[in-house]
Amino acid sequence: MSIQIEVTAASGRQQQLEAADGALLMEVLRDQSDGVEGICGGCAACGTCHVHIAPQWLERLPAMPAEEHNLLDALDVRNDQSRLSCQIRLDASLDGLSLIIVPAEC
């Protein structure tokens, strides 16, 4: 099953991406869009995969681990919709997910 993701880059460019069930969101964004670097490789250590998730999708995401929360607290543009895409594994419940890529701060 493929999962559709609606992505808005920091530049405002919109894309519709397709991902496999079980894929890591950061890897999909890094490989198919602009603006996600994922420098730490998904360890929740750099913040270069920071995204703002559309509010209607937040409750469907897995709980935020402490490491993610701590790193997001250190970023300037954190808001209530902030997540690290390296901490989100895609599944059918996230088909249609909508997000905005936040420019990397480092």
Rank of each mutant, 00 (worst) to 15 (best):
A44C: 09
V36C: 11
T48V: 03
Q14R: 15
L61S: 14
E68L: 06
I100G: 01
G38H: 02
D95K: 05
L58P: 07
D80T: 05
E18S: 11
I101Q: 04
M64H: 00
D34A: 07
T48G: 02
D91I: 04
A54F: 07
L99M: 12
E6W: 03
P103S: 09
A19H: 11
D76Q: 12
D73I: 04
A10I: 05
A23T: 02
E59D: 12
N79C: 14
A66D: 13
C43M: 10
S2Q: 09
G35Y: 09
E18G: 01
M64I: 11
D95Q: 04
Q14M: 02
V7A: 05
C43A: 12
H69C: 00
E27C: 03
G22P: 00
L25V: 11
L75C: 14
R78C: 12
Q16K: 07
I100T: 15
G12I: 08
M1P: 00
V77R: 15
Q16H: 03
W57M: 06
R60S: 09
L72A: 08
W57I: 06
I88F: 06
A66Y: 02
S33D: 06
Q4N: 07
V102Q: 15
V36D: 09
E37P: 00
G41T: 10
R78E: 14
V77Q: 15
V102N: 14
Q81S: 13
L61T: 13
V77Y: 15
L25F: 10
V77E: 15
S98K: 13
I5P: 10
S93M: 04
S2M: 04
T8V: 11
A19V: 10
I100K: 14
I100Q: 13
A10F: 12
S98W: 05
R89S: 09
L24H: 01
L58W: 13
Q87K: 04
C40I: 01
A92I: 03
L75P: 07
S93N: 14
N70R: 15
S93H: 14
S11N: 15
A66K: 11
A23E: 12
E37V: 10
L71C: 08
T48Q: 00
S98V: 08
C106E: 05
Q87F: 02
C106Q: 08
S82C: 05
L97E: 06
